[in-house]
Simulated assay, not measured.
Amino acid sequence: MTQTATTRALGPKGVSALSEELRLACMRISRRVRFESVDGDLAPHHFSVLARLEDGARTPRRLADIEKVSAPSMTRTVGYLVDAGLVGRHDDPEDGRRVLVELTGEGRAAIEQTRRRRGRWMSERVAELTAQEQATLAEAAAILGRIAAR
C-alpha cells in the first residue's frame, strides 16, 4: 500500500492518531529499556555521557552541548564518572587551557555491560510474544528504522 493509499485508508485523523500512538509507544519502550535494565549506580544520563565518549575524548562543554544540559550539570556528571573510575580527565594537548574527558577501561566495560542488560531486557519481552507478533515487530522495526533515518 502506498503512502497515499494508506492516508486514504486511515484518513488524516487516523494517520495523526496512529502517529501519536507510535510516538508514545516508542517513548515508553525507550524509557523502560533505560530504567528497567538499570543495575547499580549507572543512571541513564551517566550511560549516555559514557556512550558519547566511545569515539574519543571530548571537552565537558562539548558533552554538555551534545546532551543539551547546562555546563554545571555536565560538570557534576563528569565529576561523578571520574570518582567512579569510568572516565578520566586530562589537559588537552592542543590547548592546555581545556580539559578533555575520556573513557577508562572500566567505562568501556560499563557500556558493554549496560548494553547487554538492556538487550537482555528487551529480548525477554520479545520472546514472550507469539511468532506472529514477533514477525509483525520485525516488519515494524524495519519501517520505524526508515522513519528514524529521515
Rank of each mutant, 00 (worst) to 15 (best):
E54G: 06
S30D: 15
A64E: 03
R28T: 14
D55H: 11
D83G: 01
A71P: 08
L42C: 09
A25W: 05
R32Q: 14
D91R: 14
Y80F: 11
V38S: 10
E67F: 01
A51T: 05
S48D: 15
H46A: 14
A57R: 00
I66K: 02
S70Q: 08
G40W: 07
I66M: 04
G96H: 12
M27S: 08
S70L: 11
V99T: 15
A25R: 08
F47R: 05
L100Y: 05
Y80R: 15
R76H: 13
S37Q: 00
L100P: 04
F35W: 11
E67S: 12
L81V: 00
P93G: 06
E67L: 13
P60I: 10
M27P: 02
V82H: 04
L100V: 09
G88K: 07
T59L: 06
G96T: 11
L50M: 04
E54A: 11
R89C: 03
E67K: 08
M27H: 09
D65A: 14
I29H: 06
T59P: 04
L42M: 09
R97W: 05
V69S: 03
E94S: 06
L50E: 00
R62D: 15
R32T: 06
E94N: 13
R76Q: 13
F35P: 02
D55Y: 05
M74I: 07
D95Y: 08
V82Y: 02
A64S: 00
R62V: 12
A84P: 08
G40Y: 07
R31Q: 11
R58N: 08
T59A: 12
S70T: 15
I66C: 02
A71M: 11
D65E: 13
R98M: 09
R98L: 11
R52P: 00
R34Y: 07
E54H: 04
Y80E: 14
G40M: 09
V49T: 10
P93C: 05
F35A: 07
R34E: 15
T59G: 14
L24H: 08
L42G: 10
L53Y: 05
L50G: 01
R32Y: 10
S30N: 14
C26G: 08
S37A: 14
S37F: 00
V82K: 04
L22H: 05
D41T: 14
D65P: 01
R23S: 14
D95V: 07
D41P: 11
G40C: 10
R61T: 15
H46D: 15
G40S: 10
H45D: 09
A64Y: 00
L86H: 08
H46N: 11
V69E: 04
F35D: 13
V38A: 13
